[in-house]
Amino acid sequence: MARTPHPGELAAPDPVRLLAIRDTPLSVDEVLAAVGDDAAGGTAFFVGTVRDHDGGEDVARLAYSAHPSAEAELRRVAEKVAADFPVRAMAAVHRVGELAVGDLAVVVAVACPHRAEAFEACRRLIDDLKREVPIWKQQRFTDGRDEWVGA
């Protein structure tokens, strides 16, 4: 639980610097800029891209959809990670809409005082995002079939 500052003491800044679900291309540079922090000795990133195959099938495109509560759920997940690790700064952006092979689907980053905790917190952030935030993927295969993942 966060400590309440004493009178005259500044509250610690919110380590959650950037959270978004967007229908426009994602930027690794934007996420890197968001998590810059002079007190962080380690910054860990995860960049998820659309690959050209899944389960032995050739993938042509993906489409991501999100529930209207997805951004609020993303904030809840991020705040839980920030509470469990010494996070100085974190960011997470996920794309929705039509994506082509090679497009960025998700970018997350966590800055902590040390690299080990940055790696752990980043891993937890992407894993919890994928498990708990209501975002669904529709894979479209080159043979014309499609399937929903996570729905």
Rank of each mutant, 00 (worst) to 15 (best):
P13E: 15
E73V: 14
I21Y: 02
A89R: 09
A109C: 01
F119G: 04
A60C: 03
A63I: 00
G48R: 00
A72W: 12
F85R: 15
V87F: 12
G36T: 06
A60V: 04
G36H: 09
R131K: 15
V110L: 07
D23S: 07
K80G: 14
L19T: 05
G97E: 02
R124G: 10
F45A: 04
A20K: 00
S69D: 12
P86L: 03
L10A: 15
D128K: 02
V108D: 05
T142S: 14
T142V: 13
T49S: 14
D103A: 14
D52R: 03
S65F: 14
L104A: 13
A92S: 10
E71M: 04
D146Q: 11
D143G: 02
V106C: 08
I135R: 06
V96G: 07
R95K: 15
L104G: 09
A118P: 00
T4L: 10
Q139M: 15
A91W: 01
A105P: 07
M1R: 09
G97D: 00
K80S: 15
D146S: 13
A70M: 11
L104P: 08
A83H: 04
D127S: 13
D128N: 06
R115L: 09
L99P: 12
V16T: 02
I126Y: 00
F46L: 05
E79S: 01
K130C: 00
V101L: 09
A109S: 08
D37S: 07
L99C: 12
T24I: 03
G55V: 11
L125W: 01
A66N: 11
A100M: 04
C122F: 08
A89N: 09
T49Y: 10
A89H: 06
R22S: 02
F119N: 07
D37V: 10
R140T: 12
R61D: 01
V35R: 03
F119E: 00
A82V: 05
Y64D: 04
V16K: 02
E9N: 02
H114C: 12
A66I: 08
P68S: 11
V50L: 06
R95Q: 13
A83C: 07
A100T: 07
S69L: 13
H6L: 15
A44H: 01
W136L: 04
A12E: 11
G97Y: 01
A63W: 03
P5V: 06
W148I: 00
R88Q: 15
P15V: 01
V47S: 04
F85K: 14
D29Q: 15
V28T: 05
H67K: 05
S69V: 15
F85E: 14
V81Y: 05
G42E: 06
A11F: 09
R88W: 13
D143C: 00
E71D: 09
A109R: 06
V101W: 09
A39D: 05
E73I: 12
D58E: 15
P134C: 01
E71W: 07
A40K: 13
V110I: 02
R115E: 10
A72C: 11
P5D: 08
R88T: 15
H6P: 14
I135W: 06
G55C: 11
R124K: 10
P68C: 14
V101T: 07
H67A: 05
H114G: 09
F119D: 03
K130Y: 04
I135P: 09
A60H: 03
L129D: 06
C122I: 04
V16M: 01
V31T: 05
L99S: 11
D128V: 04
